[in-house]
């Protein structure tokens, strides 16, 4: 393999990581929600909310005389506050989905559609095309190898990444421990399988569902914040472009397990990155026909051609607690 080929391989690997971060976080959002028996097709809308609110906060704090409690805002503080507010509002969107599904017993799919439409409408309505920011999240560790070093390309894949990228992989590990190693996770899985049994044993089903939906909203919001504050740097209308839905397919591909979803997200990230690197790979194929690969793979995965997946048993059904 010549050196040119290796450069392309590393470029594809690098693009794969960039493309898969929102999918990983979106899939974690889906797991948090669906393990507690709430179907969440509103991930797309929660992502868009996080992307928009994080970006808009960044814009608001980027002004010349922007100040909090009379103090000028440093670049780090500005970005941290923007991320946190983005997470908070998207977490509230998760709670909103919870209120519709739990309190009002709305069909989960319809509630998710409401979340998606509200997010698309609100972010489009309040979007300001002339917004200016002071910039996005800087890279955490820069590539330690000089330009002509033979490890330079490896460094491109491992370093020159923002904080959220590294946090994402930590979140996957934490989610695995949370679901399978903590009481909270055990209870979450129990209400996903049999809320009546959990309720009888004293688990507060609704409170747990609301908590997990807040978590789910924040995870989707982190994916959105990543898009505007770390990856792209600006907000555009409808910029999530179906990533929330692909994340759901990734979650099913990973059989509702964080580690499985991580693998699925990397596979989908690879498919997404292939289309942008197509001309460098020397392939003469219309890029639109390559762009539809991830969607075709999703359908194939859902049809169970790569092994049947079993969802949490009580998914999509509303639950009436004892004593009501």
């Amino acid at each position: 393999m010549s050196t040119i080929d290796l450069v392309v391989v590393f470029a594809v690997l690098n693009a794969t990581i960039r493309q898969s971060i929102p999918l990983i976080l979106g899939a974690m959002s889906g797991i948090a929600s669906e393990r507690s028996s709430i179907v969440n097709i509103g991930i797309e809308g929660m992502m868009l909310t996080g992307a928009f609110v994080g970006y808009t906060t960044n814009v608001a704090l980027s002004g010349e005389d922007a100040a909090i409690l009379g103090m000028a805002v440093s670049d780090d503080a500005r970005l941290i506050i923007s991320v946190l507010i983005g997470l908070l509002v998207s977490g509230l969107m998760g709670l909103f989905h919870g209120v519709l599904c739990i309190q009002y017993k709305v069909d989960h799919i319809i509630s998710g559609t409401v979340v998606n439409l509200l997010a698309a409408g609100a972010t489009g309505y309040f979007y300001d095309a002339n917004a200016q920011t002071k910039g996005k999240i800087p890279n955490l560790i820069s590539n330690p190898w000089p330009r002509d070093h033979f490890l330079r390309d490896v460094g491109v894949v491992l370093f020159d990444k923002d904080l959220i990228t590294y946090i994402t992989f930590i979140i996957v590990a934490l989610m695995t421990f949370w679901l399978f190693g903590s009481v909270w996770g055990l209870r979450t899985r129990s209400i996903g399988e049999n809320p009546r049994a959990a309720d009888t044993l004293g688990v507060n089903v609704y409170r747990l569902q609301y908590t997990n939906l807040f978590l789910s909203g924040m995870l989707a919001g982190l994916a959105g914040v990543y898009l505007t504050l770390a990856d792209v740097g600006i907000f555009e209308r409808g910029m999530t472009a179906g990533k929330g839905f692909i994340a759901l397919a990734v979650m099913i591909f990973g059989k509702w397990h964080p580690m499985g979803a991580l693998g699925g997200a990397l596979l989908f990230g690879l498919l997404l990155s292939l289309q942008s690197q197509l001309q460098f790979l020397g392939l003469v194929v219309p890029q639109q026909l390559v762009a539809l690969l991830p969607y075709v793979v999703t359908v194939v995965v859902l049809a169970g051609f790569v092994g049947q997946a079993r969802p949490p048993a009580h998914i999509g059904q509303s639950y009436e607690v004892e004593g009501h």
Binding site: Q288, L292, T298, G304
Partner: peptide, 27 residues
Amino acid sequence: ALKAYYGANEVITTIMFNFIASRVAEW
């Protein structure tokens, strides 16, 4: 058919078919 015979949930497959249709039409 994928729902009826393979258990693929129609919500996500139809969304995916939306994307596939867009790309095919673009091509």
